[in-house]
């Protein structure tokens, strides 16, 4: 399915248009190129920094932290949500913590994390874990609770044991909700890591952005922002692909 060239232009023209306007504004001296370097300068820096491996290194640090925190939150959060949905005791003990804690801006706790875990990678991963845990648990919890009892009854009627019921009925029907929780949590992980790196660190993309902006070298700042954006976008796409692989029937996929 190739769409006509006219429609393609109509749908995507705004990005090149803005880039051209930006470049013209910079080249004509309308804005100070020191504060707002043109796209050509940014791309040049982007390539040289990637080639020299500096941006690759910082991106690897940031991605490693974001993915570790995210993976930790998923491995803890999903079984925990299942336990909360299925066991009343567990639900009563922990439901208030999740539902009252959900709207609290947890970023305020970050200073405490730096005291407990230090300024380095550990505090970032621990904090990312906390931030990702909430959307994953809350979304999966609703997924595990919203299972149609009829399906479970049918499976039991056919003689399925609790283990089979969980793996073949409960988990597949909760999977769409679990994935939407993961999809909320993944960008959160990247945001939180970049943000905490900006607050205080000596490696990572957030550090890179802060240090080059204090040197007033904004082409490097924009280059790093582009790298962050590309990382976030590709991770989301990977998650969408994994979801497509595992979730076979999802009528309300858009949600």
């Amino acid at each position: 399915m190739k769409e006509p060239i006219g429609r393609f232009i109509a749908r995507w023209y705004s990005i090149p248009l803005l880039l051209v306007v930006w470049q013209v504004a910079v080249s004509s001296g309308l804005v100070q190129s020191r504060l707002l370097p043109g796209p050509a300068a940014v791309v040049e820096v982007l390539f040289s920094q990637i080639m020299s491996g500096v941006l690759v290194y910082h991106a690897a640090v940031t991605l490693g932290r974001a993915l570790s925190g995210f993976a930790l939150a998923a491995t803890v959060g999903i079984p925990f949500a299942a336990a909360m949905a299925r066991a009343p005791l567990c639900r009563n003990l922990f439901e208030p913590i999740f539902f009252f804690g959900y709207p609290v801006p947890k970023i305020a706790l970050f200073p405490i994390f730096t005291y407990i875990f230090g300024l380095g990678t550990q505090s970032k991963i621990a904090f990312t874990f906390l931030e990702c845990l909430y959307p994953i648990v809350v979304s999966s919890y609703f997924g595990f609770r919203g299972i149609r009892t009829r399906l479970v009854w049918t499976a039991r009627n056919f003689g399925a044991g609790p283990w089979t019921v969980f793996w073949r009925v409960v988990l597949p029907s909760a999977l769409p909700a679990i994935f939407s929780g993961l999809r909320i949590a993944l960008p959160v992980a990247i945001i939180v890591v970049v943000l905490t790196e900006m607050i205080g660190d000596s490696i990572g993309l957030g550090y890179y952005i802060t240090v080059w902006s204090t040197r007033f070298t904004f082409q490097n700042v924009y280059a790093a922002i582009i790298v962050v954006g590309v990382c976030g976008f590709s991770l989301d796409q990977i998650l969408v692909q994994i979801r497509r692989r595992f979730v076979h029937e999802a009528p309300d996929a858009a949600r």
Binding site: A10, R11, W12, Y13, S14, I15, L18, P187, I190, I191, V194, L195, M198, L205, G206, I209, T210, S213, T214, F218, V221, A224, I225, V228, G229, V230, C231, G232, F233, D236
Partner: peptide, 21 residues
């Protein structure tokens, strides 16, 4: 048509990265 590409381009970027700007 004007906003969709821009938003999908910028959505994945943590907006806090623009703080220095």
């Amino acid at each position: 048509n004007f906003f969709d590409p821009l938003v999908s381009l910028l959505f994945a970027v943590p907006k806090i990265a623009f703080l220095p700007v």
